[in-house]
Design a protein around this nucleic acid. Structure first.
Ligand SMILES: [Mn+2]
Ligand SMILES: [Mn+2]
Ligand SMILES: [Zn+2]
Ligand SMILES: [Zn+2]
Lengths: 150, 150
DNA sequence: ACGATATTGAGAATCTTTCTCATATATAGT
DNA sequence: ACTATATATGAGAAAGATTCTCAATATCGT
């Protein structure tokens, strides 16, 4: 999934924040690091734990919103309606998700180039038959993960 | 989108509830009717308005949960994390969604059979390369809707 | 180091959704 | 139709996630 190194991403995040005149402070670096370590979108609570509760929840939420605005991460919502955060695609690469209907965990999955091309065609076809100007697509494969299959 | 009539759906909902020994009361009938009228998944607040506030929010939420458990509707969450409800696919037919990034509205879109078949292949391919046992898929085409394009 | 500006953290506030419980409604038996 | 029993409803309280507020801190440029 990672086409670029952790340090590389850190560098790019720093630059993006600089462009927006936003300081790359300790808490923000920690948060970015936690995001880089993920194998799929995580909840604020998960990130909070991951960070050993070093970053208070209110600050963490604010940083995640800030990252959102700066285009550094993306926010989705899981089946329970809880927000999940992950690095934006320009940092992590375009990919999709495997969602476990049992435990709710979400795992990244990157498609082969030709498969992704097929998908792009399909999405274009869908949008063409509508009033929409398509800008992207999102695919979740729903199922049961390895650990939940006993 | 509707391959079956409103009355037909009402009939099927009634039967499904009967199987679960759940009464099909006035409020529940109103709620089902509101769901049938939709062109895409709606929030509880939207349904509440749609129903002229005849059904109190707490009752509406309870009915929607109940329908969920009986497999009559499906709950997703929009970009703001707010729950959106729509009839389940065995009532409405399998379909996907066009999501407007501006106003947040969600519109149903049904794919041609051969396109859907291609998709099924792709989804199978994705799952095969993982530990997941795939049971379904969800595709959102993101873009800007007609009314939001000025 | 100093002053100006941006950031942080704790808790309050907000918003959606769920829960509680007293009351009302529907169902089944007589 | 009447009664008894189970089920459903509605108003408000409660919960849980996220955002907001504001006084205290940290950061940056000089
Ligand atoms: Mn991901
Ligand atoms: Mn739909
Ligand atoms: Zn699982
Ligand atoms: Zn729109």
């Amino acid at each position: 999934m990672t086409t670029v190194s952790r340090a590389d991403i850190d560098e790019r995040v720093a630059q993006r924040l600089a462009e927006h005149d936003i300081r790359y402070t300790v808490g923000r670096k920690l948060t970015a690091r936690a995001l880089v370590a993920l194998a799929g979108p995580a909840t604020a609570a998960q990130l909070h734990d991951e960070l050993g509760r070093e970053v208070p929840l209110s600050s963490l939420y604010r940083t995640l919103s800030l990252f959102d605005e700066a285009g550094i991460n993306e926010r989705t919502h899981d089946a329970d309606g809880v927000a999940r955060y992950e690095l934006a695609e320009w940092l992590l690469g375009h990919h999709h998700h495997l969602v476990c209907n049992k435990c709710g965990e979400v795992e990244d999955v990157e498609l082969a180039t030709e498969v992704e091309a097929q998908l792009a065609d399909i999405v274009r076809a869908i949008a063409d038959g509508s009033e929409y100007h398509a800008t992207g697509h999102r695919i979740d494969v729903e199922g049961v993960c390895g650990s939940c299959r006993d």
